[in-house]
């Protein structure tokens, strides 16, 4: 929590001196990698999304493009746009890339088979070849109830069918799809170790603090240079650093399930702009009345959103804990 010196406003998170912010992050990244970790460069997994793009741009600025390698890790369910945008990004920053399709590794782990088995338990007529599936939170964040996931399947004719996920199937779907992030982490460390580089992670502040990452998956990295930045600030940096506009304009997706799914419907339940301000207000103890007035919402809604934040932070503590010994 920061010392509260400003009254709450919609502009409160706007970075005033972006060049200085970039300089500070880059200086720290150099110190972390070269001095503390004693590594020669940076490995960044690039997905064509905004966070990994900003991290690649920062790493390039901090260490020089010759000391940064971008790894593209598509699999069967990835959008083709992800690969195309990641390549465009690497080209823009002059960074060497490797493409590693992890679908075969995931087949080996039984990722797709285990996931589809759980989906079929819920929807016996699910056809993994033709139908697509995703999990999502149907409740609104302003309801004072913990989030529970529903499974949605999308038929070839576009029909959506949704059902509340029983615990067994929910856990099996999450555990099997988490093979994706963990396989990516393994491949990133292969490159890092073979070059004596560090793995630079890409989670932003919300992902870290709300637990929107996979333990030892995308949460497995040596350094996380944007782990303290709100999503709107990541966008500010993207504009400043010259990340391709197509990446900036793209709606953030999970790129994990076969059906298209935004991060908002999967996890956050509200637009980033609002979430940034509300999270900031919550963690800095702003008065609910003041926040409600600025954001033009009911105080009861803000109260329930704050309770939801508190629950998310508490229930995801396990993800952020190191091994206990």
């Amino acid at each position: 929590m920061e010392e509260r010196t400003k009254s709450f406003s919609k502009e409160i998170l706007k970075l005033e001196n972006i060049e200085l912010v970039c300089d500070e992050i880059c200086q720290k990244l150099r110190l972390n990698i070269k001095t503390e970790l004693k590594r020669r460069g940076a490995i960044v997994g690039i997905s064509g999304g905004i966070d990994s793009s900003v991290v690649l741009a920062l790493a390039t600025r901090a260490l020089g493009k010759e000391n940064v390698v971008g790894i593209l890790l598509p699999e069967r369910d990835s959008s083709p746009d992800s690969l195309m945008l990641a390549q465009k990004l690497a080209h823009k920053f002059g960074v060497k890339t490797f493409v590693e399709d992890i679908s075969q590794a995931l087949e080996g782990f039984g990722c797709y088979k285990r996931r589809d088995e759980a989906v079929t338990n819920v929807f016996p007529d699910f056809d993994p070849i033709q139908d697509k599936a995703k999990i999502e939170i149907k409740q609104t964040i302003s309801q004072n109830i913990p989030n529970v996931f529903s499974l949605t399947i999308v038929k070839p004719n576009g029909t959506h069918i949704s059902r509340l996920l029983p615990s067994k199937e929910y856990l099996q779907i999450v555990a099997s799809t988490n093979f994706k992030q963990r396989s990516r982490m393994s491949m990133l460390y292969y490159y890092a170790e073979s070059l004596h580089y560090s793995v630079v992670g890409t989670p932003n502040k919300h992902e870290v603090e709300q637990g929107f990452f996979v333990k030892y998956g995308d949460g497995g990295a040596d350094v996380m240079p944007i782990g303290h930045l709100y999503k709107t600030q990541v966008y500010q940096l993207a504009e400043h650093l010259g990340v391709p506009q197509e990446i900036i304009d793209r709606t953030p997706t999970t790129d994990t399930y076969s059906a298209e799914q935004t991060q908002e419907e999967f996890f956050y339940q509200m637009p980033f702009y609002e979430m940034d301000l509300l999270w900031y207000a919550w963690e800095n103890d702003y008065q609910i009345d003041e926040v409600a007035m600025v954001l033009n919402k009911e105080t009861s809604e803000i109260q329930n959103i704050f309770k939801n934040f508190e629950r998310k932070k508490k229930t995801t503590e396990y993800l952020r804990l190191p091994p206990i010994f």
């Binding site: 004072n144 109830i145 913990p146 529970v148 615990s167 929910y170 309770k307």
Partner: peptide
């Protein structure tokens, strides 16, 4: 139950299983 922190998301999901 939720205000007292007795159930989180997984707790609620297990409760729904129990009711079923």
């Amino acid at each position: 139950l939720f205000d007292e922190g007795l159930f989180d998301s997984m707790g609620l999901l297990f409760l729904i299983d129990f009711i079923r």
